[in-house]
Design a protein around this nucleic acid. Structure first.
Length: 556
RNA sequence: UGCGGCAUCGCCAAGCGGUAAGGCAACGGACUCUGACUCCGUCAUUACCUAGGUUCAAAUCCUAGUGCCGCAGCCA
């Protein structure tokens, strides 16, 4: 995705806000950031945050930072730092402003906290977690002041330093912002801004035993990096007053502003990192990059491209209303791209033998098939034709349903790129199963031959039995049977709606010979079937990205 | 029960007082050696959560309701 393409993305309410800000201050250089906590793998919901922050910066000629929000050492790990970076680069959202770590600002966070204490705006509180909750009040009742709220500046300073030096055990004290215990906004009821945690940090080691909390650290990080627009998801909307409080009371000259947008939800899948982890850990899926997962590594393995993902995100739009976007929109986006770019190949999912009775036994002839009929420049390839062929079992019906125009007894059908054949006889075994379909070809109708122009209604794909290669096809389906997982009734869980048939492994598919050399990651359209990608994890395996649309009346 | 947010077609979503964009899905039809693609057409008209009101004119403004989401971590 190039910058010029980014400029074409539709406007949204965030752009309106920026336009307004720019009208007031034409000198403003837009600066955004993507601040993931390295506690899991990125998913398509994260990609929305990336897309919004990144494309907004690009649209206005601004700068985009990646910042690991690593203020909670208990949940974070280098494994995730690495994967997040890979996924971000894969998407093409280059952090041209730099890569930062929230933990690199610990020193400054500490100094700002000392300043707040000196200004009488923060205090050390000895309340236990449970007591703090009691004192906080409820949604409808105001809270009560902590008995430690009026400690002197000197006492607070000494206590906070002792906290830092490791004098106190985990949970025994916190540093709290002195705001308003009666605020109708719970976040303003003297929120804890530092906690004691004798846990080593994945980057800082044992340097710290007190850690700043999100609401305190985030605005500082934004201010220090010169972020102008801190675009985050809507559950932080109630935190905005606290975000502004921190900026104002520390006294930053540069004031970043937080704006919120609705999170992304997609039908038939789940965005909860907690639950995705559970799927991985219980073995219900084959790792974080299982092709059914909404993770970026899962989508990548499934064959989705960054362009299709961004296209999807852009089409889904940006607003503040809770929504669940149809998975079919994502499928549409990848189909649209791959229709233009994927070369066509033949694969037969469930082979059944067809014998061309009037074709010589040992003859081989080659037909040229276009790599992409919609794109002349894609060139052609050769497909061997012999007396014995495979076609897909679905393309033959002994008792055809209405409007069936594939192969049927006595019927004619076109073998794509080759002859028109007529079904004349069925050979069955003792059980009555069809062993082979015997057909007669109209040998004048091959591509470029005199009868080339003859029309029949149906066209099916085929493979020379002697030349076809074996391959494994992985056919994935939706992870959950329920459309909107947030609508799961009480008493039921995600597990009750897991699609038990979300994967079908086809071990004995046949593919055309040239596919034996397909490079991992290569995408194709298997003609009349769908788009597939050669897997990089398992040999000789093709993963179905998405099927072709099918308007056959009896389908679906 | 407090505070904040959101309510426009099956799903997203424009609209910012001047008479309901667009995309996906769906449904017709044309084309077709992929029942794909492409193309053409249909798809909110006592209509914009409801009820009142202001106005020549309201999805847009006002009033009163209703519904849904978020918030009571020393998580982010």
């Amino acid at each position: 995705m190039t910058d010029s393409e980014n400029n074409t993305i539709a406007s949204n309410f965030i752009h309106d806000i920026i336009d307004r800000d720019l009208a007031e201050n034409p000198e403003l250089k837009i600066h955004t950031r993507f601040p993931p906590e390295p506690n899991g793998y990125l998913h398509i919901g994260s990609a929305k945050a990336i897309r919004i922050n990144h494309s907004t910066a690009k649209k206005y000629g601004g700068t985009f930072n990646l910042r690991y929000d690593d203020t909670n050492p208990e949940k974070e790990d280098e494994e995730y730092v690495k994967s997040i970076y890979e996924d971000l680069l894969w998407l093409g959202a280059v952090p041209d402003g730099g890569v930062f770590y929230g933990s690199d600002y610990f020193e400054q966070c500490y100094e700002f906290a000392v300043k707040l204490i000196k200004d009488g705006k923060a205090y050390v509180c000895d309340l236990s977690a449970e007591d703090m909750r009691l004192y906080r009040g409820t949604l409808t009742e105001p809270g009560r002041n902590s008995p430690y709220r009026e400690r002197t500046v000197e006492e607070n300073l000494a206590l906070f330093q002792a906290m830092k030096e490791g004098v106190y055990p985990d949970g025994s004290k916190t540093l709290r912002a002195k705001i308003d215990m009666a605020s109708p906004n719970m976040n303003l009821r003297d929120p804890a801004i530092y906690r004691i945690l004798h846990t080593p940090h994945h980057r800082q080691g044992n340097k710290w035993c007190i850690y700043p909390l999100y609401d305190y650290a985030h605005p500082i990080q934004d201010a220090l990096e010169g972020i102008t627009h801190s675009l985050c998801s809507i559950e932080f909307e109630n935190h905005r007053p606290l975000y502004d409080w921190v900026i104002d009371n520390i006294g930053f000259a540069h004031k970043p502003h937080q704006w919120e947008f609705a999170r992304l939800n997609v039908t038939h899948t789940v965005m909860s990192k907690r639950y995705l982890r559970e799927l991985v850990e219980t073995g219900l899926v084959d790792g974080w990059d299982d092709p059914r997962m909404p993770t970026l590594c899962g989508l990548r393995r499934r064959g989705y491209t960054p362009a299709a993902i961004f296209d999807f995100l852009d089409r889904a739009g940006v607003s503040k209303s809770l929504s669940v976007v149809d998975y079919e929109l994502l499928e549409h986006c990848i189909r649209e791209e791959l229709n233009l770019t994927a070369e066509r190949r033949v694969a037969v999912v469930d082979p059944i033998k067809v014998v061309i009775t009037n074709y010589p036994e040992h003859q081989v002839e080659y037909f040229e098939l276009p790599n992409n009929p919609n794109d002349e420049t894609a060139g052609k390839r050769q497909l061997p034709f012999t007396r014995e062929l495979f076609i897909d079992r679905e393309d033959f019906a002994e008792v055809p349903p209405p409007k069936y125009f594939r192969l049927k007894p006595g019927g004619e059908v076109r073998l794509m790129g080759a002859y028109i054949i007529k079904c004349e006889e069925l050979v069955k075994d003792e059980q009555g199963q069809i062993r082979e379909i015997r057909c007669r070809a109209d040998l004048e109708t091959g591509c470029g031959m005199p009868g080339d122009g003859r029309k029949v209604k149906g066209t099916i794909h085929w493979l020379s039995a002697a030349h076809a290669k074996d391959a494994t096809l992985m056919l994935y389906d939706k992870l959950f049977t329920i459309e909107d997982v947030s609508a799961i009734p009480e008493g039921k869980g995600y597990g009750d709606y897991l699609n038990t048939a979300s994967v079908t492994k086809v071990s004995h598919a046949k593919v055309e010979p040239v596919l034996a050399g397909a490079a991992p990651g290569q995408r194709y359209q298997f003609v009349r079937l769908g788009y597939f990608i050669k897997d990089h994890k398992y040999d000789n395996t093709f993963i179905r990205i998405v099927g072709l649309k099918d308007s056959y009346p009896n389908k679906k």
